[in-house]
Amino acid sequence: MGIQQILESVTESQVKQGLPRMDVGDTINVHCRIIEGDKERIQVFQGVLMSRKGRGPQEMITVRRIVDNEGVERTFPINSPKISEFEVVRRADARRAKLYFLRDRSGKSRRLRDRRRGLKHVAGLKTAEHA
């Protein structure tokens, strides 16, 4: 086994299995486990998936939402045990891999097109809205 394979085998068990398919542009819910003192609760962060970067155990996603007319972006490690669940709320069509242009948009132009044309591969996939 090469060195790289050994390194990957060390972190293999930490990569989460069975995550829903999340593409850039989708609106998703991120369920974060927050520990306050000895109590634990779950906070949901809903927003547009703006970028996915990194591979394997290191993969990070950036989610953007608008709170009180102010853009808020949070970056989550996908495989962190502190995140209990991901949910896809709405699928949308994005032509680029990173939606940083959303930062410069306001009002209606901020919305992303619904996924319809030629995107049969995601047609039927479960989202929180339909469930």
Binding site: I3, Q4, L7, V10, Q14, P57, N79, S80, P81
Partner: peptide, 21 residues
């Protein structure tokens, strides 16, 4: 020394580690 990566500890914190054979 094989290299570095990171793992999560029981509390969910990412810890940088060096892997040594």
């Amino acid at each position: 020394k094989l290299g570095q990566t990171r793992v999560y500890d029981p509390s969910g914190r990412a810890v940088p580690v060096t892997v040594v054979l």
